[in-house]
């Protein structure tokens, strides 16, 4: 036969038709309902913040890889996901240069400085948001009233900033459909849940983290307040849906072990409730997730599965 030297490589010789890019594309698709809702609620200001955040993240990713002389990774689309999530975590009225700075912090500081995709130990979008929150507390706490469609930048109370649920001007339906003050992408719980269901159906995420996280917040709030209404209010308000479905499930910064996911989500829920009920901030989702991100390697270590067929951990105790 002809010159017979063939390609020799390790098994398996078949690969599933999947890629990092396809997964990120699925996440972007899952974010579309919330994206549409944010533009509907907050108008052109939402568009501007989203465009600036995504643009800043993509540019930061591209330039970081260029300067570090590493293979280009813009094509995996993960920087677009980070940009969208960052934008969803900002108020519509934020000065655009601040939004852009958030993107730079997220990509350069939280992601690329640690080695890029797969190597960051905290969620980049959340670090972007937290840095902005610390640096520009005024701008980060000016909430537009969506009903006014952003024409007047009047400060309006977010659902969690009220003294108690009983005094809240919002009912559960308003929270579900998003017609209240808040960050761009967090207000419409319904749109976020649709995205979450899409991710589960497409097997991009397992439902463990969102269900346990939201469930923990519900149960703890119920135990503390004694009110099912308050507990329901708390799971629909603030950044919980966005955080539990899209941020806490970030692959790189959450445990890969099945039981690790449960413990991690329980921790996220507990910290969120603690901050919301007794902390000095009205909202605690960002900090809760970031703290649990940092604990992820430790959680993984203690939740390592026993291999198939091994009854007890007798060998390596």
């Amino acid at each position: 036969m002809e010159d017979n030297r063939f390609l020799v490589s390790s098994s398996p010789h078949l690969r599933e038709d999947t890629s990092t890019r396809m997964i990120m594309l699925d996440v972007i698709i899952a974010l579309i309902p919330a994206l549409v809702a944010s533009i509907w609620l907050f108008g052109w200001q939402a568009v501007a913040v989203i465009v600036v955040c995504v643009g800043s993240c993509v540019a930061s990713e591209y330039l970081s890889r260029l300067i570090l002389k590493r293979p280009q990774t813009v094509g995996d689309l993960s920087c677009i996901v980070t940009g969208l999530l960052l934008a969803f975590n900002l108020p519509a009225s934020i000065p655009l240069w601040e939004a852009a700075l958030g993107g730079v912090v997220a990509i350069v500081v939280a992601k690329q400085m640690f080695g890029g995709i797969g190597h960051n130990f905290v969620n980049p979008a959340l670090i972007g948001r937290i840095v902005l929150l610390m640096s520009f507390p005024g701008d980060m706490n000016t909430w537009l009233n969506p009903v006014g469609r952003g024409l007047d930048a009047i400060s309006s109370a977010t659902p969690l900033a009220v003294q108690s649920v009983a005094e809240s001007p919002y009912d559960l339906g308003t929270l579900f459909f998003g017609a209240h003050a808040g960050s761009l992408g967090e207000t419409c719980a319904g749109a976020l849940i649709i995205g979450g269901i899409y991710l589960v159906i497409r097997r991009v995420i397992k439902p463990t983290i969102p269900l346990v996280y939201i469930g923990t917040v519900f149960v703890l709030t119920w135990l503390i307040t004694g009110q099912v209404y308050d507990a329901t209010y708390h799971i629909l308000a603030g950044g919980l849906m966005l955080g539990a479905i899209f941020m806490a499930t970030d692959y790189t910064t959450s445990p890969i072990t099945p039981w690790g996911k449960v413990i991690y989500a329980l921790g996220c829920g507990l910290l969120t409730v603690l901050i919301r009920q007794w902390g000095s901030l009205p909202e605690g989702v960002s900090f809760a997730i970031v703290i649990m991100n940092i604990l992820t390697p430790l959680i993984e270590r203690v939740t390592h599965s026993r291999p198939f067929g091994q009854k007890r951990r007798e060998r390596h105790a």
């Binding site: 999947t18 990092t20 997964i23 990774t73 995996d76 993960s78 080695g115 890029g116 995709i117 797969g118 190597h119 397992k206 692959y251 790189t252 959450s254 890969i256 072990t257 099945p258």
Partner: peptide, 10 residues
């Protein structure tokens, strides 16, 4: 490309 820790292998 780098592992994104998606957990599909797990």
């Amino acid at each position: 490309s780098p592992c994104i820790r998606c957990g599909k292998c797990v």
